[in-house]
Simulated assay, not measured.
Amino acid sequence: MICAAGASRRMAPDDKLMLPLQGRPLLRHMAKRVLEISVPTLVALPPEPHPRWHAVKDLPLRKISYPESAEGLSGTLRAAVADLPPTVTHLCVVLADLPELAPVDFAQLFEHRRQYSDCLIWRSLSPNGKPAHPTLFHRDTFPAFAQISGDVGAQPVIAKFKSALHEFTSSRRAGSYDIDTPQDYKTYLKSQV
């Protein structure tokens, strides 16, 4: 699941997910990276009409908007988990503003899930030990999502299942390097020259 329903307030007046990256909007760049791993993918978007819908309109993603997204990331996650088909066994959550995230980061996460299959949540950490993305949740955690609210994301779920959490340090910063402000964007562009 790509979380792309946020208001992008810190980037105002620009929409950070529509900023150009390698000739395409950041959201499209991220969606195409996720699609490379060949798993069913949904993207949570603001209500239509919104430019983000156009950015991914031709991509093979399930595109959806949840009214609960107005309250923040937790609302989006709560609604998305409630909307999952009963056959879904795991949910991989990723934010849409991570320009360096690549299939290798997902492969590493899925390998840890295979190695530590007795856990219920798998999360990468940045090279300096900070929580990063993507994060993978087993379906046994899904009922806990019904209780979350606000803009704290899945932190309450992770805290509830702390004893069943597997964290590993990634060799890459991609899962923790996000674009939130105009300065973040400028810095990123300079690093690509």
Rank of each mutant, 00 (worst) to 15 (best):
D118T: 11
G129H: 10
G175N: 12
D118H: 14
F168Q: 06
E111F: 04
L136A: 09
Y116H: 15
H133C: 10
T181E: 06
K130V: 05
T169Y: 02
D178S: 15
F137C: 12
S171D: 12
F145P: 00
L189W: 01
E167D: 03
T141L: 08
D178F: 13
F168Y: 15
K130W: 06
D151F: 02
I179G: 05
I158F: 01
V157Q: 02
P143R: 07
Y116P: 00
L189E: 03
I121H: 10
K130C: 03
A144T: 08
R139G: 01
V157H: 02
T135Y: 02
S117V: 01
Y177P: 00
Y177W: 09
K130T: 08
V157N: 01
L136C: 12
K160R: 15
H138F: 02
R114Q: 11
H133K: 12
D180C: 07
L125S: 11
D140H: 13
R173W: 14
P143C: 05
K162D: 13
Q192E: 12
S163P: 00
H166Q: 10
A159H: 10
L125Y: 10
A132Q: 10
H112F: 09
T135A: 14
S117A: 13
T141E: 08
G175Q: 13
S171M: 07
S176H: 13
D118W: 04
P134I: 06
S117R: 13
G153F: 04
Y188S: 03
P182Y: 06
L125C: 07
I121K: 05
I179L: 15
A154R: 00
K160N: 04
A174V: 09
F145H: 04
S191R: 14
E167A: 03
Q115C: 04
K186P: 00
Q115L: 14
H138A: 15
P134F: 11
S171N: 08
L125N: 13
Y185E: 03
E167C: 13
D118G: 06
R139S: 09
L165Y: 11
G175W: 09
K160Q: 15
S163H: 11
L136W: 13
G150E: 02
D151R: 03
D180L: 07
V193M: 08
K130H: 11
P143D: 05
P134D: 14
S126I: 01
D151G: 03
L165Q: 03
Q183A: 12
